[in-house]
Design a protein around this nucleic acid. Sequence first.
DNA 1: TAGATTGTTAATCGATTAACAATC
DNA 2: TAGATTGTTAATCGATTAACAATC
Lengths: 270, 270
Amino acid sequence: MRRTPVGRQTRAARGIPEATVARLPLYLRALTALSERSVPTVSSEELAAAAGVNSAKLRKDFSYLGSYGTRGVGYDVEYLVYQISRELGLTQDWPVVIVGIGNLGHALANYGGFASRGFRVAALLDADPAVVGATAAGLPVRHMDELESIVESQQVSIGVITTPPGAAQQVCDRLVEAGVTSILNFAPTVLTVPDGVDVRKVDLSIELQILAFHEQRKAGEEPEDEEPAEEPVRERAPGPVRAAAAKLRRAASGGKETKGETDRQAVLPA
Amino acid sequence: MRRTPVGRQTRAARGIPEATVARLPLYLRALTALSERSVPTVSSEELAAAAGVNSAKLRKDFSYLGSYGTRGVGYDVEYLVYQISRELGLTQDWPVVIVGIGNLGHALANYGGFASRGFRVAALLDADPAVVGATAAGLPVRHMDELESIVESQQVSIGVITTPPGAAQQVCDRLVEAGVTSILNFAPTVLTVPDGVDVRKVDLSIELQILAFHEQRKAGEEPEDEEPAEEPVRERAPGPVRAAAAKLRRAASGGKETKGETDRQAVLPA
DNA sequence: TAGATTGTTAATCGATTAACAATC
DNA sequence: TAGATTGTTAATCGATTAACAATC
């Protein structure tokens, strides 16, 4: 996707796969721990175990960065820490704004891993006058009105959105307009951004739903309903009839079934 | 990966790809919004736009669930909400424990999207006597000692870990031992679990680092250091020499470089 | 019947993995 | 030199996408 030979000529490092990029922080964390224990070198096998991946994947990942290992020996911990840090852009300082200082914004402002790794909270912003002026993590909460001036004066390129879902797109638009080009979105909202802006999302509800899916599988696949047994080959009733049927099922599904090892009530999301 | 024909015979739905499972919650969210606006039917094109994916992917995803659409018409919103909810296991109620009631645990306990979608906070747990007894989101914080009895008596199968990193594995072990088989980990720790236990992780620091990587790319790839230009073809000095060189570079890299459009200080993660 | 839209096919792309030659 | 471990190859697997026949 990303194909941005903006600067000078493209070097090998340009083509690092997304899946690899997403694992570099894991390797870096494991390496940092080794570094703190003054471990001088580490093999792909050991490091992979510490990072929770297999060693073939790790070596493949590192091969995109260059040949930083020594055959028969392993990797120099300090050197790798430095190379990965540089590859990830962590040899710079990245000022970040957090917009929406509710419970979650508060938690993030206080998050330790934030300050390390080169990320610095440039400002906390909120639209609520009752919150503005309060202090979180030693920083004053400032009003949304200051968003543009802060982003510009402090060269903020990363914004974190922890607003209620209804405000997220609007906040996102303002951040982008002001010059932010990377957004980490904690609001359960699909954000629309122009080309060149990256959005990553963190969504508790989605993670839980994925876990629930697998949990249900593990629980043994008993019927959760009256007639689910041969459900894929269901008859094709016209839409409205189906909807009515669904409603009936929903109404009927309250607290009926009992799973083998559990006894959970049937509940549909609101 | 997951191949668990635990219950009776395997039906088509067994083989839903992970990537599809991860998108079902997105579709469900978009459908719920349509449902609330009383929209009766939706095309793959419209729904895909609302969920932020392309329509071919959406149709492919839905094809794993069954044939729930009507050619020439689209999908019945209510019916799809029901089918996806059931597929994800959301027609049941899932009691969840949150362990570690710091800022983040607090925020999660208060998170609205938690209570909807069938997830219910069964208990908040903390090891710190100073926190135990306090109230968060209307629930008392209980002591870790009660973990086992709560998990067993309330049939909790999902645990959320929001402890400091040092405590995460230990908490994880206790959860698993008590019977929890799905874990959502917010601590920046690689958790080791037995087969049959699912772990998903949410890691702010990793997300920010991935954004920083792309941000750096966008910024145009100027040298962040003295000699990075032909860095992939670097000479292969033996480990210790490399490490020393790296340290030199680290020491030297403080506040030197100036990017084209930014002026950030060079900082290495702690 | 004509128009619309699904469900599926097949091609392509990207990620994972095992195996092993290269080489320290 | 012998043992260890990297870096790379090639096979496999899974995910994405465009296109279109099926069919409402």
